[in-house]
């Protein structure tokens, strides 16, 4: 993968560059603010970029603004937003923005599990989704549709969270230690209970769920 990194903390930026190189990926640019990020993406056309939310000059949400703009301007570039905190508003803004490419929102802690982090990054680069379990929990919790969600069994809720995190059916089966067949049954039940017609693409499935949660 060719990756652009936008992170204002030098120690983390260097760490990410090293980590990607070690795992056989190329960090084509590592920058420290939103404007430089947009310029770097335009120049290098990477597969995916890793974007810190809080960057200079205002240290509030310029990373998020840049990420939303990138999804609009470069629909084919995956955007993985990377932050110390999970803010529900940021997650919904990011997901509500246009863009057919992959999108992700992870806590910075997740980089500690190198393999999972690289998997998530690869998924986003390939047009998929990677949402932190925290994001999913907050979206589920903050959704005004708790009455409908209350109709789900605890198991179905777990499956829904895994789905929202971007996992495929077999991935969910592995994570929850159940059979693929059981997961398919749960997913069908969830769609039925939420009134959603099942569709084929994994990404479309996640986005459908999320769009429903955001409403």
């Amino acid at each position: 993968m060719r990756v652009v990194i936008a992170e204002d903390s030098a120690i983390l930026r260097d760490g990410l560059v090293h980590l990607l190189a070690d795992r056989g990926h190329e960090a084509v640019a590592a920058v420290g603010d939103g404007d430089a990020l947009r310029a770097a993406v335009a120049t290098h056309e990477p597969d995916v970029c890793i974007v810190d939310i809080r960057m200079p000059p205002s240290f509030t949400d310029e990373g998020l603004r840049a990420a939303i703009a990138l999804r609009r301007e470069h629909p084919d570039v995956g955007v993985l937003v990377f932050s110390q905190y999970i803010e529900t508003r940021y997650a919904t803004e990011l997901l509500a923005g246009s863009g057919a490419g992959g999108v992700g929102y992870l806590l910075k802690d997740r980089v500690a599990d190198v393999r999972e982090f690289i998997e998530a990054l690869t998924r986003v680069a390939g047009g998929g989704t990677a949402l932190d379990p925290e994001v999913v929990a907050q979206l589920l919790g903050s959704s005004g549709r708790t009455d409908v969600l209350a109709g789900l069994t605890p198991r179905e809720r777990e499956v829904l969270e895994q789905m929202a995190a971007g996992r495929s059916n077999s991935g969910i089966a592995a994570a929850l230690v159940v059979t693929d067949r059981a997961v398919e049954k749960h997913v069908a039940n969830i769609f039925m209970k939420l009134g959603l017609p099942p569709s084929e693409g994994e990404n479309r499935r996640v986005l459908a769920v999320l769009r429903y949660l955001e409403s």
Binding site: I11, G15, Q84, K108, V111, A112, V114
Partner: peptide, 16 residues
């Protein structure tokens, strides 16, 4: 926080 993330990253990589 940044240092601890970097620390976790390095330990994670070493573990791998």
């Amino acid at each position: 926080q940044a240092r601890l993330v970097a620390l976790a990253m390095n330990v994670g990589l070493a573990k791998e």
